[in-house]
């Protein structure tokens, strides 16, 4: 249809028609997107550029007049500091463990929501509460639960134990709080993926003699792969910026501070804008590397890909 021989005169006129019709659509598209784009650029792109600029300065908020350009010195200071590396490993550990646990639990939860026939509404509603609840509120609930003399969970421990004041127990509790809060979100994403697995394919696998475990690993997981990867990507990046839970549970004490906590402390406790900005930029780069790795490794499964079609 679209490829037909036609006189050149027609083609010339067609060229004009193209610009008229398409130009109108294009202008409308730009017009509608412009406000959103402007806001996003102004509030993220510009500040991140500004952060890069600040990170190249010696800039102490107590002595703003003494600000001066110091090149990459701030980065050197951060990257040679044990605080950065401690926070980095803590963040990585919490991210890796909580995302892994969430994936397993979330898959189980998604199966329950997918298969259960009665109380389905109740289960879905209940599961949305951890997602919706304010993180700080949940974090306080966990904190009180583990506080000796106050909490129901602390009572289960030998008396005198205060798990939130020791590094490893505290880290596990942080992970627990994080897992509790975000597993439902993971489960919902996976549930949407489960809905994409055709019932008939599973029946075919059953007839072909696959065990339940084989049906899960050989049929469901491959078909759900896009949903799993999207869920993993979202959750990994989200967990990497963990802040609220740690701030409330331990305030970053006892070697439990994440990178976000470190950045916050440098800015608002040490009042060092230069170092704080350098940390901000470094965290941004880390997130970029994680996102890039996901997209490179899993290619088409990147969330942006779905829109192209």
């Amino acid at each position: 249809m679209s490829t037909m021989a036609e006189p050149t005169k027609d083609k010339a006129r067609a060229g004009k028609a193209l610009s008229a019709g398409a130009r109108q659509e294009r202008r409308l598209g730009w017009l509608l997107c412009a406000p959103a784009v402007l806001v996003m650029v102004a509030v993220t792109a510009y500040p991140i550029g500004y952060a890069v600029y600040l990170s190249l300065q010696r800039y102490d908020l107590r002595f703003p007049a003494r600000a001066e350009f110091v090149g990459l010195n701030n980065y050197g200071a951060v990257l040679t500091s044990p605080f950065w590396w401690d926070a980095f490993w803590v963040t990585l550990f919490v991210t890796a463990v909580s995302v892994a646990v969430e994936l397993v639990l979330g898959m189980g939860l998604a199966m329950v929501m997918h298969r259960t026939l009665f109380l389905r509404g109740t289960v879905r509603t209940a599961v949305l509460i951890p997602y919706g609840i304010v993180t700080v509120v949940a974090a306080f609930s966990w904190q009180y639960a583990w506080t000796p003399e106050l909490g129901y969970l602390a009572e289960l421990l030998p008396s005198g134990e205060a798990p939130l004041t020791e590094q490893w127990p505290a880290l596990w509790l942080i992970i627990l709080a994080e897992v509790w809060k975000t597993t439902p979100f993971m489960a919902l994403l996976l549930l949407a993926g489960l809905a994409l697995v055709p019932e008939e394919t599973l029946k075919a696998a059953m007839v072909d003699g696959a065990t339940p475990w084989q049906r899960f690993t050989k049929v469901m997981v491959p078909l759900m792969k896009p949903a799993i990867l999207v869920a993993l990507l979202f959750r990994t990046l989200d967990a990497f910026r963990i802040f609220d839970n740690i701030y409330v549970l331990t305030a970053g004490a006892h070697g439990t501070g994440s990178l976000s906590i470190l950045g916050y402390d440098n800015l608002f406790t040490a009042l060092n804008l230069g170092i704080g900005s350098a940390i901000s930029v470094l965290i941004f780069i880390c997130v970029g590397i994680i996102a890039f790795t996901f997209v490179k490794l899993f290619g088409a499964a990147a969330p942006g890909a779905e829109v192209k079609r």
Partner: peptide, 20 residues
Amino acid sequence: MSLLIAMFPPISLVSPLFNI
């Protein structure tokens, strides 16, 4: 761009936004 912002670590914006 919106995907990028969805993944943005807010802490990275806190210091510049604070100053701006």
